[in-house]
Design a protein around this nucleic acid. Structure first.
Lengths: 251, 251
DNA sequence: TCGATGGATTTGTACCAACGAATGGATGAT
DNA sequence: ATCATCCATTCGTTGGTACAAATCCATCGA
């Protein structure tokens, strides 16, 4: 990797970056216009745009015509994946997500789409399904205060849930995990995989992601007491909006 | 899946992206040269480079003079943060990281730098330190097979560790956690925070990151039996090389 | 046979020019 | 006073050109 950062556009980017990290340009602040930077540094507009493009890709700023280039606010909200499976407070009938969000004084909502699909290899192997086995998937797009927040696609083996509420469209107020429990497949163990990457185009559109925002992909596989996988939940979390927290006790 | 994406460069990027995701262009495959794409689509080189730049920012490809534009291999290696604090196998004297890597048949190494610092606010508050309190930090840069792999900076309250091995430079084969234990501050509870973002310039250089690679920032705070924070470990993990896995049992 | 050298290829950086698109504000009409 | 329209500003996209830098590879020399 280059150290010298000799090129002009790197120099411009570096100056602006420092101004942002130092707080001289706080969230919401407008950067100098491209024309202004052009004069200030005595470079062409293309060079200025290269520099700004780098900041966009780092998720530091957004650009829009006429509004200019603006420093993004990128403080994440806290998330406790452990609590999603823990018992809800007595009398609480909403799902874990709705409960957690409204606890913060914000307004949760979601859309649900239920399908029967032949799952891709990555899902099928986690559910220990054969080539021709089908899965029921509940695809959720979640909103906070009307803004897209994250997606959660939960896959269940079709044979397990085909006659239950899970295979039918619509909300399950008490949560799908409760239904699995009622079907005799209470989850007693889960494995969480966490990775990050840049979003693909579909994810970027669905979640209305700014350029330069990575996503955290969070895959939870739940096993029942017979150690059979009964649920694979794939969550896609825009990195600028989520902070994941685990609390672990040690023996 | 694709929306109109009216602009020319988006169209070119979209075509190439599809070829990559479909496997027509597998890892290591070389994309057509810029000149070739220029002819193929009848657009200017600028447009071609815009399209390729987008793929670079998505972490799908890398570019290098004369070598061309190449599809990246982006399969992550597994990591179990839980095991880092678990007891090592009997007789194992190496740290958790070295042990885990060599288990995979690969060669771990690391550099260590020990400093006494006035920690930044983010660290200080987690360690419950006052404005003038100092911390000992052990900064590690870890390699696998000679390639930079991740960084791990562990902060300890200075008053706790100033006379111990932790405050002295050099490896601690049995691990700093063991030393804390010997000092009467065995960690009995940890809180893990996980977030993702694009790397800053320093991180990109230190870890030799390709463009378009996000990092996972992983912060573990360890508490002793008196519920006093005794260690804050900040790990920076290149997203293309790490998959984090938690295994949780439910009550 | 092996190494050095130099040309060809391909990407990297930088410049200029033009027009399109979106928006905020000023202006004018009702 | 209110609303519609127009205009100036600012970013978005695309075309073009030139030279630098890195690398591959073939050729030449020891």
């Amino acid at each position: 990797m280059k150290v010298a950062r000799s090129s002009l556009y790197q120099q411009v980017a570096s100056d602006l970056r420092r101004a942002i990290y130092s707080g001289d340009l706080g969230p919401g602040a407008q950067l100098p216009t491209e024309a202004h930077l052009q004069d200030q540094y005595g470079v062409s507009r293309n060079t200025v745009r290269l520099a700004l493009g780098e900041l966009v890709n780092e998720g530091l700023v957004t650009r829009a015509p006429r509004r200019g280039t603006i420093v993004r606010d990128r403080r994440p909200l806290l998330m406790y994946p452990q609590r999603e499976l823990a018992a809800q407070p007595r009398g609480e009938v909403r799902e874990a997500f709705a409960y957690a969000v409204s606890q913060e004084g914000r307004e949760p909502s979601q859309t649900i789409e239920v399908q029967i699909v032949s799952p891709v290899e990555e899902i099928a192997s986690r559910l220990q399904l054969g080539d021709r086995d089908l899965a029921v998937v509940r695809r959720r797009l979640r909103f906070v205060d009307g803004q897209p927040y994250n997606t959660n696609d939960s896959y269940f083996p079709r044979t397990l849930v085909q006659d239950s509420e899970i295979a039918r469209p619509g909300d399950i107020a008490r949560g799908a995990n409760r239904v699995l429990e009622e079907l005799g497949h209470k989850q007693v163990r889960v494995v969480d995989d966490i990775m990050a990457r840049m979003p693909n185009q579909e994810e970027a559109e669905r979640l209305q992601l700014e350029l330069g925002t990575p996503v955290v992909v969070y895959i939870r596989v739940g096993y029942d007491s017979a150690d059979t996988p009964v649920r694979v939940a794939v969550s896609v979390l825009p990195a600028d909006k989520h902070l994941i927290r685990y609390e672990l006790g040690l023996r």
